[in-house]
């Protein structure tokens, strides 16, 4: 599948995060189970497509989230998503990742992403919770959600991103 079709899907997922998914969550889980669905796509891109695609996707979708929910600050999610996408790509883009490998990598990267976001907010003094509390309150519950989401979309997402990578590779050979 080409990028022109993946981006609308990601946009759709992004809008669902703040609207339909929010309604699906029971009231006491809101802001404890945080969806990182667009981040999952960015990480799939970095695993199966390449770090440059991933960094571009991460920067743009992070920026979208920053602006759409502009409260205090712009740039936190953009920075962390781009950074995490790039780092994951740098580590693993050339290797053929299996399901287990991809799962572990995506969960680790999500953890890193949450940590980066937390520390940026901390540096700008917009949050005063301790890291341990943030970990227990929302980071770990969100990881479970991310695990479920990645398991559900693993097969189609891998096909979409690998398909484009292969095509691109062939084009380059020509």
């Amino acid at each position: 599948m080409s990028m022109q079709r993946i981006i609308p899907i990601m946009l759709l997922i992004f809008f669902i995060e703040g609207t339909i998914f929010y309604w699906l969550l029971p009231g006491n889980l809101v802001s404890r189970v945080v969806p990182h669905f667009t981040l999952a796509f960015v990480l799939f891109a970095s695993l199966y497509r390449g770090r440059h695609t991933a960094v571009l996707l991460g920067l743009s979708f992070g920026l979208l989230q920053d602006i759409v929910y502009y409260g205090n600050i712009i740039g936190v999610h953009s920075f962390s998503m781009g950074l995490v996408g790039y780092m994951t790509g740098l580590l693993l883009e050339r290797k053929r990742s299996t399901l287990l490998m991809a799962l572990t990598m995506i969960l680790l990267s999500t953890l890193v992403y949450e940590t980066v976001v937390y520390f940026v907010y901390r540096v700008f003094r917009l949050t005063h919770q301790t890291y341990e509390w943030a970990l227990m309150d929302h980071i770990i519950p969100s990881l479970f959600l991310q695990l479920g989401f990645v398991l559900v979309i693993y097969v189609p997402a891998r096909r979409w991103f690998e398909g484009t990578a292969k095509k691109k590779g062939e084009e380059e050979e020509e």
Partner: peptide, 14 residues
């Protein structure tokens, strides 16, 4: 209301 942010550090309501 048209959307609510999921970010625990920034629970903006639109």
């Amino acid at each position: 209301v048209i959307a609510v942010s999921n970010d625990p550090y920034n629970q903006t309501i639109r």
